[in-house]
């Protein structure tokens, strides 16, 4: 079997396992239901005819993505290798004529596909509701929003795989994933806010420190995608628009890709070096 064939087979098995996993089903259903509820709610107050709709729905979708997608990506990634190692199935798998790189890449792609399908389903259902509810949306901006969410999911998945490759037990991996989630979503921002308040950070430094966090990079890119500008982010937003201009979106997407490539390489490195049991 060619290496690509192995990757494809492992990926397919990973998609199948994910679809059958209770956790994944819970995540996917929860995301879809929340996306639907949010689009319904934000259309409910439609006082301005065509004014409501997309902007607000999209903003609440961004909030949903900010909270749930990192959680999904991190915990699914963290559970993946650690779970199989603990059950002993990883040893059986690696006894086949396959390399560890092929297995890890296959697992990553399979999980990414499954997660992408869950996001596409959630966004798709929300889009149906937005259209039915009378709110219009630029399909381009909506698609961009989904694309960015996908990039974030892939980055979080890669980070989850690092945890999974390094962890000894599933519980430890899940715990580490949850803590990483808490740190990226809440503690990082709160810490940065506190630092900005006490140390009077220059705007450029604050912006740079913020976008080092992939979740922040996603949030700023998503705001740019919805409103067409980052005016709402105040002086830091104005600074970003002034210095980067049209390169802002590619730069933020690049940060997300970087957060995919680097953790994935680290995960490969650890997985290839460690004993499997």
């Amino acid at each position: 079997m060619t290496p690509l064939g192995v990757v494809r087979l492992v990926a397919r098995k990973e998609v199948r396992d994910a679809l059958r996993s209770r956790w994944f089903q819970l995540y996917a259903a929860g995301f879809a239901i929340l996306a639907l509820a949010l689009s319904r709610l934000s259309l409910g107050e439609a006082t301005g005819g065509g004014l409501a709709g997309f902007g607000r729905t999209a903003a609440s979708l961004v909030n949903l993505v900010l909270l749930t997608v990192p959680l999904m990506g991190l915990t699914l990634g963290a559970g993946s290798l650690a779970g199989e190692r603990e059950r002993g199935t990883l040893a059986t798998l690696l006894a086949q004529p396959v390399t560890r790189t092929e297995v890890l890449v296959g697992k990553y792609l399979g999980l990414g596909l499954a997660l992408g399908a869950a996001l596409a389903a959630g966004f798709g259902l929300a889009a149906v509701f937005i259209a039915l509810g009378g709110g219009g949306a630029a399909a381009g901006a909506y698609g961009l929003l989904l694309g960015l969410a996908l990039l974030l999911a892939l980055a979080m998945l890669a980070l989850g795989l690092v945890i999974s490759a390094a962890a000894r037990r599933t519980t430890a991996a899940t715990g580490a994933a949850l803590f990483t989630w808490l740190g990226l979503v809440f503690l990082g921002d709160l810490g940065l806010m506190g630092t900005a308040l006490t140390m009077r950070l220059p705007v450029a430094t604050l912006l740079l420190l913020a976008v080092l966090n992939p979740i922040e990079a996603y949030r700023i890119a998503a705001i740019q995608a919805i409103t067409g500008s980052v005016d709402v982010l105040g002086p830091a937003g104005a600074y970003a628009a002034r210095t980067l201009g049209d390169a802002l979106m590619p730069a933020l997407a690049g940060m997300l890709v970087l957060w995919t490539v680097v953790p994935l390489s680290v995960a490969l490195l650890i997985f290839n070096r460690r004993s499997i049991v």
Partner: peptide, 19 residues
Amino acid sequence: MLETTPELRLFALSPAQDA
């Protein structure tokens, strides 16, 4: 906080702000 530190507007619409 925005009144004294307008740079913090960077964190608008973030989960941290809601928290």
